[in-house]
C-alpha cells in the first residue's frame, strides 16, 4: 500500500510479523512498517471481524491495534520498532485468557 523512499541500509532491524521476518529502519514507527506489508491490515474489527488498518497515525483512532511482544491492543502508531520485536495481527475481540 505504501513504500519507503529510501533504503534503511545498515541501520535495518528485523521485526517478526505473524512469524515472518521483515526488515525495518531502526527507530521507525511500527504502524508505518505494517502499512508497507502486502497484507495491508493489522487487525480485524470486534463486531464484524472486518480487516482494519492504521487510519489517523496520531493515536486517536485505535485502528492500528496489534499484539506486540505478547501485549494485546497496542497502538502501533505510537510504537517504535525494535530489533527482534514480535508483532501479531489481532483478530476480533480481545479475550481474557489463562
Amino acid at each position: 500500500m505504501f513504500r519507503k523512499l529510501h533504503d534503511p541500509g545498515p541501520s535495518a532491524v528485523t521485526v517478526l510479523i505473524d512469524g515472518k521476518a521483515v526488515s525495518a529502519e531502526a527507530g521507525e514507527n511500527l504502524a508505518a512498517l505494517l502499512l508497507r506489508q502486502p497484507e495491508g491490515w493489522n487487525r480485524t474489527s470486534t463486531v464484524s471481524q472486518s480487516p482494519r488498518a492504521p487510519y489517523c497515525m496520531m493515536g486517536v483512532c485505535f485502528e492500528c491495534l496489534a499484539e506486540v511482544d505478547g501485549v494485546g491492543s497496542v497502538q502501533t502508531c505510537l510504537t517504535t520498532v525494535r530489533d527482534g520485536m514480535r508483532v501479531s495481527r489481532q483478530l476480533g475481540r480481545r479475550m481474557l485468557s489463562a
Binding site: M1, F2, R3, K4, L5, H6, E25, E28, N29, A32, L33, L35, R36, M57, M58
Partner: peptide
C-alpha cells in the same frame, strides 16, 4: 505523518 516520520508515500 508517514511522509515526515518514515519517508513513506503511497505505492
Amino acid at each position: 505523518i508517514l511522509l515526515k516520520t518514515a519517508d513513506q508515500v503511497p505505492e
